[in-house]
Design a binder for these strands. Structure first.
Lengths: 232, 232, 232, 232
DNA sequence: AGTTAATCGAGACGGTACGTCTAGTCTTATT
DNA sequence: AATAAGACTAGACGTACCGTCTCGATTAACT
């Protein structure tokens, strides 16, 4: 990404240095706009206006609107969906997926979906999405799956990604195609079926406790655009 | 929607009737543009120009650019990915998925992905996509799965859609997130793992024959925008 | 004009004859629109809509919007500003001019001004205006002036039109340029000065009675556009 | 103390300053178009195209097409019709009117007429016309008339404007209504009749010399629309 | 009574302009 | 240098009319 490179190179900071406040204003303004608009309908002009910043400043540091959105989203999205460390792999993964589904059912899901959407006509956005959203999560899950495979004898494929994909894809497909809701019923149905296929007992849903809603700061006041509104 | 006007109703047909040629010109022009541009970068103005048609004519019959694209795509997409009727369910489904993966690896996939992308900021587009692309396919697969379940004793879930989703989602996710290629290796890997989980022998890949490439009319001359360009 | 020609030629009235009601509907609709809009902002489309009539019907019988407006205006403008017949020429002319000024100070004046305005980019409109509005009035005044010249010995020019123009022009100029109001003070000032120059006693204003406001049917509800709103 | 200096200059001049070249391009393009089209048929889009300028730039600085036309016209109309300073009032006024008639008989007249026409549906245009075309001229004539009145004993009215109007109006009425030509014969006829009424000897026409055609830069190549094409 | 020709409503259609908006780039003054 | 402000070209937006053009349905006068 753009502004993260500055640290690496001990650049001779000639001239006025970059104003960090400005960067934060831009990201904050972007989030503010995303509370009530879709990524598509947000414009760089609009962000500049909202942030009280020159358009050129945005163009200088980000190569596209979607990149600003990604930065803005990650800036506040500190509460990433974690992989519970204190549970056995089977439960940890189940809980993780459940949290993800819950997370994606709201504002965050809309943003993620719209970032992927932007990526369909801009490969660099999609790459950025993969690198900064996806890669980490994927690694996390792979490790959990490998641990699980070592502990039990579930039929893991040669390429463990195939199983990972089996677990993840239905969530993303619902997020993007909206052919069904992203709720706890779906979570249970999906997870327990896969576990059944794996020959593993369905985790006791209630013992997992409530969906960990870790202090959502950003209320989804008026959802942006709202695409995938469920379906029969 | 536009041209789906119920023919059964003996419409008053007052005023000058719609010109079918014009409709076809618009759809043809749209396809022509989509060969070299992304859906996002195609404009209604551009379609009108290419088709030699007034903008208002497009606005009169379609409520958004994406709707035109959907119509245009379906108009030529006569070669839908079929469900082979002469094969046993297990093989038919495998072959069907394989065809779909192949189909989505090219121009069609890019268009479908970009339609879904448009849908992220316009619910009606997503709905239209589901109704006209997805619903039919889904029904087809469900019936095949039910036939299969009756014939063998694979562990079908209560809701057969859960299995359907397991089969389909990884394809759509690759299409949209681009974390991996949509090629025959993926097809084999994905299908054989799910079949293994279902306790069914992996279909003999070679006996399925080559991917049925049924007379592709529309060559993907210069791919539109190209999003999900593989990944590490 | 269009529909007046039919009478001359004993045209082979084959086919469906023209519908007189339609013609009246169009003219009535036009007047209705002119009560709240300027001639410029009235459209043929709008007239057709208001009259519940096909656009082509208007195009068939009138060659431009302005022609419709002229017809519509004259249709109701039966109460033309008359030349009082029972008064001596000096008084008749004074009274006539006074009436005209009063007439032009309201809705009628706005319409006349806007017809002349349309005429600036369409010679045929201006010609029509002259033939149907102006010619009659001009003749009337010429005759009165000649009668007056014969009766008294006012210094009439070789071309009596020059005097006519002196009397009329200031009214039209105020109507069109709006550098001053069109009210009774102006009428008095203007007429008495010209009469003074002619060596004729100023007519006794009060003896002329009130401005003859002959049963204005058409209230100027909301004036169209209103241009010449007086000035210092 | 310090901030008083900043307040001195009212010109904030923040942001990129206006490009004067652009302004001139727009006005030049407007004049170029007006050589072959009527004001009505000129469009802002057309001006932008001709000037090689964005539409928004025009909308930023002018509130209507007519305003651009007024600016463009005045930009080149440096050769205003002057009031000869070296002649006695009677002759100066005669010469001035004669020049004006000559001026208005061509391209300039058409433009002025069409600006007034635009003013009939847009009060601000008419106001602008009065302020920038008319006011100066009016003042000039009033002063000449007052000087004349002081020098001789012509019957000037209480309000000197009434006489001014008598001299000017016939010219404007011919310009706008086109019931007669704007040529030297008309000039002579009109002026000599008014002078006769004023009890002043008709100026010796030939001694006035030819109509001062002061280096017309702008040839009227193909007249715009041509409205008031004389009349019987 | 049937034929014929024109009228009329409705509205589709290719154009064109509207006035607004945003994309990116560029210019100036300020910090 | 970096920044805010904003001018600038370019071009799409969606709407409104233009004037022309089908349609189908009427409506008389003339076969």
């Amino acid at each position: 990404m753009a502004e993260t490179t500055t640290l690496k190179t001990p650049r001779r900071a000639v001239g006025r240095p970059r104003n960090e406040t400005t960067r934060l204003q831009i990201l904050a303004a972007t989030l503010r706009l995303l509370e009530s608009q879709s990524v598509q309908s947000v414009t760089i002009e609009g962000i500049a206006r909202e942030a009280g910043v020159g358009k050129a400043t945005i163009y200088r540091w980000w190569e596209s609107k979607a990149m600003v959105v990604i930065d803005a989203f990650l800036e506040q999205h500190v509460v990433k969906v974690p992989m519970p460390a204190d549970l056995p792999p089977a439960l940890a993964i189940a809980q993780h997926l459940r949290s993800l589904i819950h997370e994606y059912s709201g504002w965050s899901g809309r943003i993620v979906a719209q970032i992927i959407a932007e990526g369909q006509s801009d490969p660099s956005v999609l790459r950025e999405f993969r690198d900064r959203f996806h890669a980490g999560r994927r690694t996390l899950v792979r490790e959990s799956l490998l641990a699980w495979a070592k502990a039990s004898n579930i039929p893991v494929p040669d390429n463990v990604e195939a199983l990972s994909e089996l677990l993840y894809s239905p969530i993303y497909m619902r997020l993007l195609v909206g052919h069904g809701p992203l709720n706890d019923d779906f979570a249970r149905e999906h997870i327990s079926y896969v576990y059944r296929l794996l020959g593993v007992p369905t985790p006791d849903w209630d013992s997992l406790g409530p969906v960990p809603t870790p202090a959502r700061k950003r209320a989804r006041r008026s959802r942006p655009a709202s695409a995938a509104d469920a379906a029969p």
